[in-house]
C-alpha cells in the first residue's frame, strides 16, 4: 500500500512540476495561450506514443531499442501508401500500419524468447533491420497523408454547451492521445495479462513458478510496444504530412521520459500516466527554451543534457535501491 502511495506521490510531484512549468511559460511569454497549447499537444503526440511503447516493455522487465526505427518504418509505410491514393483508402492504411507494428513488435518478442539472446541485443539488431526496411520503402522523405488524418490532430474539439474559451484548451491532438492510450491501457491494466506483465517484470522466476506464461506475456508486451510505436509513426505522418526514413530522437527521449515518469528500468513498477506527464514536462522545457530565444541547436544540446542527466539519475536511484555490494 505504501508502495502505491509512493508511486502516486511521484506522479503527483511530476504533475506539480508540469503546472509550475506552465506558470513559468506564462511568465516568459504572457501571450502564451490555447493556440500554443495546441501546438504543444501536437508536438508531444509522437513522443508520447514512443514513451508508451517503451513503458510497456520496461514494465515487463525489458527494453526496446527499436522504438524510433519502428516509428520511422510505420511512418514511411503509411506515407507512401497514402501517396496519390484516395481519402477512403486511408481507412484501410491505418489499420494495416497498426497491424504491421503489432506483428513486427511480436517478432521482436518472439526472437527474444526463441533465440534467448538478451532483449537489448535483439532490439538493437531489429533497429538495424527496421531502419533498413524504412530506407527500402522510401529512400528520402516523401509520401503524403490523407486530409482527414491531418485534420484529426489540428484544431480543437467543439463541445456543445461549453464556451469557446474552454473549448480552445482542448486540442484534438490531446484527445486523440488520451483516447488511443486509454483504449489499450485501461483494459490491459485491469486484465490478467496486465498483471502478468508486472509479474514478469518484477521477478521472472517467481512469475514462472506462479504459473504465468512468461514467454507469451513477453511476446505480447513487445507486440503492444510495436502497436504504440506504429501509432507514433502514424502521428508523425499525420503531423508532418510526409514520412521520413531516418529515425528521430525518440529512443533516448522515450527512455528518459520512462525514467522521469517513475518507471524503474528494472521492471515491474510504475504506470503509464507518469511517463506521459514526463513527456509533457520535457517538451515544455523545450518550448520555454525556444521562447527564451535560444538558438534551436543549443536547445538540442540542452535537451540532450537533460535527458542524459535524467537517465543517469535514474540509474543512480536504481543502485541506491539495491542492497550494498550487489551488482546492478
Amino acid at each position: 500500500m505504501s508502495h502505491l502511495f509512493r508511486n502516486q506521490g511521484w506522479v503527483a510531484g511530476l504533475f506539480a512540476l508540469l503546472i509550475f512549468l506552465f506558470i513559468v511559460t506564462k511568465l516568459i511569454q504572457p501571450g502564451y495561450g490555447s493556440g500554443d497549447f495546441g501546438s504543444l499537444a501536437r508536438a508531444v503526440l509522437p513522443y508520447a506514443f514512443a514513451v508508451a511503447a517503451q513503458t510497456v516493455v520496461v514494465i515487463a522487465g525489458g527494453i526496446d531499442l527499436s522504438v524510433a526505427a519502428m516509428m520511422a518504418l510505420t511512418s514511411v509505410t503509411a506515407a507512401s501508401m497514402m501517396n496519390g491514393a484516395s481519402e477512403e483508402y486511408a481507412l484501410f492504411v491505418v489499420p494495416f500500419v497498426l497491424a504491421m507494428g503489432f506483428v513486427l513488435g511480436a517478432l521482436n518478442g518472439a526472437l527474444i524468447v526463441v533465440t534467448r539472446v538478451p532483449d537489448i541485443v535483439v532490439t538493437l539488431a531489429m533497429l538495424f533491420v527496421l531502419q533498413g526496411a524504412a530506407l527500402l520503402v522510401l529512400d528520402a522523405p516523401g509520401g503524403a497523408a490523407a486530409e482527414w488524418l491531418k485534420a484529426m490532430i489540428t484544431g480543437t474539439v467543439p463541445i456543445p454547451g461549453l464556451p469557446d474559451a474552454i473549448d480552445a484548451w482542448l486540442p484534438k491532438a490531446l484527445l486523440v492521445l488520451i483516447v488511443c492510450l486509454c483504449v489499450i491501457w485501461i483494459p490491459l491494466r485491469r486484465s490478467r495479462l496486465g498483471l502478468s506483465l508486472y509479474a514478469i517484470g518484477s521477478s521472472e522466476l517467481a512469475a514462472f513458478r506462479s504459473g504465468v506464461p512468461v514467454a507469451r506475456t513477453r511476446i505480447i508486451a513487445y507486440a503492444l510496444s510495436g502497436l504504440f510505436a506504429a501509432m507514433g509513426g502514424l502521428a508523425l505522418t499525420m503531423s508532418t504530412g510526409i514520412g521520413a526514413p531516418i529515425p528521430g530522437p525518440y529512443l533516448l527521449a522515450s527512455v528518459a521520459a520512462v525514467v522521469l515518469g517513475g518507471v524503474a528500468l528494472g521492471g515491474g513498477k510504475g504506470g503509464l500516466l507518469g511517463p506521459i506527464i514526463a513527456v509533457f514536462v520535457l517538451r515544455l522545457v523545450r518550448t520555454d527554451l525556444t521562447l527564451l530565444a535560444i538558438d534551436p541547436n543549443v536547445t538540442a544540446i540542452i535537451e540532450g543534457l537533460i535527458m542524459v542527466a535524467v537517465v543517469m539519475f535514474g540509474a543512480f536511484i536504481t543502485i541506491r535501491g539495491r542492497p550494498a555490494g550487489a551488482t546492478p
Binding site: L130, G132, L135, V137, P245
Partner: peptide
Amino acid sequence: EGGRRILFG
C-alpha cells in the same frame, strides 16, 4: 543501402 542494413542486423 536499406537492404544492407537489414542484412547487417
